[in-house]
Amino acid sequence: METYENKKMMQTVFKNIRKDILRISEISGHGHIPTCFSVVETIYAFYEVMKHDSANPSWEERDIFILSKGHASLAQYVVMSKFGYFDLRDVESFGSFKSRFGCHANRLKVRGVEASTGSLGHGIGLAVGVALSFKIKKSDRRVVVVIGDGESNEGSVWEAVMVAVNLKLNNLIIVYDNNMSHQRGLQITNPGDRFKSFGAIVAEVDGHDVAQLKNEYILRHDTVKVIIANTIKGFGCKTMISNQYEWHRRSPNKEEHEILLKELDEAAV
């Protein structure tokens, strides 16, 4: 159980990650900030709990993390920099012509990124293949893939879930970032029931609570597990929360940046 002090300290960590995301987005003029803000704790939680080694990204015993909702790449870059994969200053080139750090990550350019994603509904199928390969090798390595609720409009997501359940891939954790993006278009009500009806084990957590996310990772089951991570797009900044359409893909100018920073500082995260 985490103490109040620990929890508070961790919250500061997440505020700082969000500040880095804002800063880099302002510098670069790129980024999907609200969706980055919804998955900060999720990405951080799994980098904390999974087996991996930033000094040796191709360590043969590592677990695999795949961000299928690739437009949250900036959140992944900032979190990975905290875990020592690269210097955060390098990420400041985000989205520029020669940058290694694209608005959607390229695994061949970014140290430690396992899959190049961007087009929605791809990373999850790839994750199924990785999880299957660990089963064939009789390895206890695990795979975490983060998908979006909007992304789950794609039929390929559900294909992949069916295949994963059919193969009983209990080394695969699908994190469903339920940040309500789906409300804009094709709505997915009761996602947990849907995944359950596909045969997956489903757990529902507060996606901004690292402890809950980590606990669900630790609990083992005999088939695929889907963690419905209930999150808020733009979490920590009320301007983005109340104007999600406007901020979906938008970088702040200097003035807006100041306002968003203030909101973050004041937020009861």
Partner: peptide, 26 residues
């Protein structure tokens, strides 16, 4: 048997899974 999968009629996933397997040396 460990390397044979009739994965079903889901061509998108067949390819993605193939890529995932390739990423681990298969």
């Amino acid at each position: 048997p460990d390397r044979f999968y009739n994965m079903g009629i889901c061509e998108n996933t067949l390819i993605s899974v193939g890529a995932g397997l390739a990423s681990q040396g298969f």
